[in-house]
Computed example of a mutant assay.
Amino acid sequence: MLYDTTSDVIRKALRGLDLAPSEAAARSDLSEREVISASRGPAFRETLLLLAPSLGLDGPSLAGLPEYVPPASDLPEIIRLELPFDDETVNAWLVQAGPDEYLLFDTGTRAPHVRQALDDRGIQKVHVLITHQHGDHIDGLQTLEGRTLSVTIPPNNAKPGDVLTFGDLTVTVIDLPGHCQDAVGYVIEGLAHPVCVTGDALFAGSMGGCAPGVPYQAALKSLHAHVLSLPDNTILLPGHGPETTVRSEKIGNAFLASGTPQ
């Protein structure tokens, strides 16, 4: 299942643009009541198509989100750890870098779920790489004492442009601001397809929520510059929800399919 619905996307766009429902309604030939309703639950396709341009979103992508199914990865070196987080889930991603060498991207909450997931797979030690310092992505690090070969946390020792080597893999740090200060992504080369761990900067069909104004615009620009510029077959590993690809997000993500932000 996707992490975000059409109403989530609409609320994130309204917030990012600092736009009241009444203003969006005036721009889209809809009533304020229709905009508010669309931001709270399912909406008619015609409503979504009318509303999307006023929010800088791609209409067909927004209207098609309920049926959007991003492609699943076929790489055996990638394992999704879908960990409990309140009444939702959060992802940690295991990527095999060589025989008995694993990278763990994010760690879930402070509950011992990630440690148990490693135990279940017979994995004793990992290199940990954190995308951003929100509790549901970094707090699980506390449960991995004695089991980390290295720990990479932005901005301490993970800055955009850094290139790291683990076994057969090369990992490049990219700047993904907006949702969280100093957030980064990791581009992995050395597998059959390129891979990018996006954290909460991007979800399949959506993106992480951002504060209005500069953070929101910076997030969009960075996603276009650093993620959509990757090869179309690049596998994207988000902080929540299923994996996807650059090609799929260019078509199915209403934030990104609408063109490069100005």
Rank of each mutant, 00 (worst) to 15 (best):
A72T: 11
T89K: 07
N91H: 09
H134L: 12
H113N: 14
V126T: 08
L65R: 14
T107E: 10
H127K: 10
E67P: 00
E77Q: 15
L103E: 09
V114G: 06
P60L: 07
D136W: 12
V126N: 08
V126Y: 05
T89Q: 05
Y68D: 09
P60Y: 02
D86I: 06
D136I: 07
I78S: 10
A63V: 01
P112H: 03
E82V: 11
A92Y: 01
P76K: 06
T131D: 09
I138L: 12
Q96K: 15
L81V: 01
Q116G: 01
G64N: 11
P71Q: 03
L65N: 07
I79R: 14
P71H: 01
L103Q: 07
H134A: 12
D106M: 05
Q96S: 11
H127S: 14
L103S: 08
W93R: 08
N91I: 04
R121A: 08
R110S: 14
P99I: 07
D74S: 12
F105G: 06
T131N: 14
A97R: 03
A63S: 03
Q116E: 15
S61P: 09
E88Y: 11
L62F: 01
Q133V: 14
G108T: 04
D106C: 11
A72I: 01
G64Y: 00
K125C: 01
Q133T: 15
D86P: 00
Q96I: 00
L65Q: 09
G108D: 09
Q116M: 08
S61R: 05
E88T: 13
E67L: 13
D100N: 15
E77L: 04
P66I: 07
Q124Y: 04
A117I: 02
Y102R: 04
D74I: 03
D139Q: 12
P71C: 01
A92T: 07
E101Y: 00
L83F: 05
I123R: 04
A92V: 03
E82C: 13
S73Q: 06
D106A: 14
A111T: 13
I138K: 06
L103C: 12
D87W: 00
L103A: 11
E82K: 14
E67D: 15
H134P: 00
Q116T: 11
E101R: 15
S73T: 15
